[in-house]
């Protein structure tokens, strides 16, 4: 489902003496439907960078990143957008929303984007928000004013609203209490059970052990850096 071959990434900082930073080199990995792979490695090893590249957010210098058979490195923006809408979900560490939009609509939006009717999408959104223990009185408010943990749960609800065949999870259980952590882990297990291919970053080792089938240490793709 997710298939990377010989992917490399460098940053060129034109405004800082054109410094070239090699971040990742020759990454190859495959995630099958129903499989969950954890990315590990020290901070700065490039876990988030790799995840962002798979999402098309960072541009790869070479190699192929195939999601559902489409190579995102060679794709037009509209093709990447279509993949993101229908195939590839991404739960980032931070919630980024239009101010003023009610939480319920924030969560329902991915469903509306794939053409689901407003009522049906909201019903599904309500389910998820309830599961994640967001009090109902907050649903009509914008999540921009919520606490960090609440924002993270809204973000997860939004990420799991549409049953994507492939998912990227960046620290989904960070800053959650035990009960909510349990809800998120069961959401991940359900997604796996329906056949989603998942790549995750988990600092929470117990969580990692519970949901992940294998681990990939990103450090081994990191070029040896001077200093």
């Amino acid at each position: 489902m997710i298939d990377l071959s010989n992917v490399s990434k460098t940053f060129t900082l034109h405004n800082q003496g054109s410094a070239v930073i090699e971040v990742l080199n020759d990454v190859s990995l495959t995630v099958s439907p129903g499989e969950c792979v954890a990315l590990t490695g020290a901070s700065g090893a490039g876990k988030s960078t790799l995840m962002r590249m798979i999402y098309g957010n960072y541009r790869a210098q070479s190699g192929k990143i195939r999601v559902g058979g489409v190579d995102l490195v060679q794709s037009e923006p509209r093709e990447i957008i279509q993949i993101r809408r229908e195939v590839l979900g991404y739960v980032s560490q931070f919630l980024r929303v239009v101010p003023r939009v009610p939480t319920l609509d924030v969560v329902a939006e991915p469903l509306r984007a794939v053409g689901m009717g407003s009522d049906e999408a909201r019903t599904r959104a309500k389910d998820l928000l309830a599961q994640l223990n967001i009090p109902e009185r907050l649903w009509s408010l914008s999540p921009t004013t919520f606490s960090g943990g609440e924002q993270q749960r809204v973000n997860i609800a939004r990420g799991f609203a549409h049953p994507y065949p492939a998912m990227l999870l960046d620290e989904p259980t960070a800053s959650l209490d035990a009960a909510n952590r349990e809800v998120v882990l069961s959401l991940i297990e359900t997604a796996k059970a329906r056949g989603a291919a998942i790549i995750g970053i988990f600092h929470d080792e117990a969580a990692r052990t519970r949901v992940c089938d294998s681990e990939i240490d990103v450090s081994r793709f990191t070029p040896a850096r001077a200093a």
Binding site: H14, N15, R52, G56, N57, Y58, P77, I80
Partner: peptide
């Protein structure tokens, strides 16, 4: 390019 890609990983000086 893609909006978030251009903003998060700009290529041109």
């Amino acid at each position: 390019g893609l909006t978030d890609q251009v903003l998060d990983d700009p290529q041109h000086a």
